[in-house]
Amino acid sequence: MNLLFLTLGNMDNVHERGIYSDLVREIARRGIQIYVVYPGERRTSLKTEFTDIGNIHLLKVKTGNITKTNLIEKGISTLMIERQYLKAAKKFFSNLSFDLVLYSTPPITFSAIVQYYKKQGSKSYLMLKDIFPQNAVDINMIKPNGMIWRYFREKEKKLYKVSDTIGCMSKGNMNYLLNHNSFINREKVEIFPNAIEPVEMKNDEMIDAGVLEKYEIPQDSILFIYGGNLGKPQGIDFLLQVADHFHQVENGFLLIVGSGTEYDRIKDHLKTFHHKNVRLIHSLPKKEYNFLLKKAEVGLIFLDPRFTIPNIPSRLTAYMEHSLPVLAATDKNTDLKTILADSKSGFWSESGDLESFIEHARIFANNSNLRNEMGKNGRNYLEEYYDIKKTIQILLKHC
């Protein structure tokens, strides 16, 4: 069996942990030949390259810069990527047929390449991770009903129509999709959550302590960690409010790790106010970040309060894997709050409700038994519902 996977994720190290790399490895373990097409951005790649690693076949296509660049270059590169992927796939996979074409959003511009392989008999599966352009409208990056919106809305519809099956991250995500796209047949939509390959977390006290010392984090503090993208979708205004008031959390230490368009803004803000119990670190190698997760006591999630789309950030699975209770501040539309309540693995506050967020942080800081209990609950929930070994069955039944 052959499966084609189109992604914007960096797959240079397919053995690295992550929702897409874990998915690829699990498919390969099932004896399936999986062909992965992913971008080699201009800043790092000189040419298109093809590599075989057992059942995993990697086609790195030279593209424009998609990440860590301005909106104009990102937009142009995203629009060009479909043609670049299709050209490379035709060249390197000319003698192959695929049982299933798998792809995720972003981007929403893969309809032509999906249609090309459907005409050859492939089935198609969309992993819906991002509902664009509405998410950009929500945070005022695109004008509703404007020319840009209309262009991408048509692209979005084409992608939904060409997809035989659409896998949504959560029930709320699925209901939103169906309620706002009446042309979609409900029968072809299902829940396919973010999932990983859970591994046992072993502590190395010497190494872990050294990481805390390196970043000047007090050994006896209660470490609250946020790790991930630092952009407009994360609701940075509220994150900065939390930083300004985190001194109210006795013995609490707020660590922010990541990169993105708002990183410099956060850096300048923290430099101005000199918070003693808040630290900002630029994105780290995965291994070192995982050492920090091992020493953390609480995992944080932030989303902009204006979102109307139920988003489920992938960092939730990383926190659950490390048995970290979760403290989330998001829009009121996401069903993340329902997931936290059902799993008994954390607290939720609406983004902007500073009093509620700080109170929840205080509760965590003052109750180690609660932290441990909620952390274990999250790990158990991960193993039950977000283990790629189990969720992969949802996908493979369509092959």
Rank of each mutant, 00 (worst) to 15 (best):
V61R: 11
K376D: 14
L270Q: 13
H360F: 12
T109E: 11
P305N: 12
D335P: 00
S124H: 12
M201D: 09
M127I: 15
P133W: 03
I256A: 00
T69I: 06
E297T: 10
I236P: 07
G375S: 12
M201T: 14
T330L: 01
I56E: 06
I19Y: 02
R362S: 06
G9R: 08
K90A: 08
H247A: 07
R150V: 04
S221Y: 00
M169A: 03
N10G: 14
G227E: 10
V37M: 09
F364P: 02
N251V: 01
S323E: 12
Q134F: 10
L382N: 03
H275M: 02
F50K: 08
S182N: 13
Y289W: 10
G9N: 11
F50E: 12
E250C: 00
F307E: 06
L79G: 11
I266E: 05
T51P: 02
I388Q: 03
R17S: 14
Q248T: 09
F224C: 11
V36C: 11
T69A: 08
I142R: 08
D204F: 05
G121N: 10
I76L: 14
I34L: 01
T338F: 10
G252R: 00
T48D: 03
E373I: 13
S77R: 04
L177T: 06
G31C: 08
F192A: 04
H282I: 04
M11C: 15
V278D: 02
I222H: 02
K119W: 08
T63K: 09
R379T: 06
K232S: 12
R362G: 00
K267M: 10
N277A: 04
E26P: 05
N185W: 09
A328M: 03
I131A: 04
N55I: 02
L71H: 01
E262V: 07
K68H: 10
H360C: 02
I236M: 12
P39V: 10
V137A: 11
I339A: 00
G258P: 01
L292C: 10
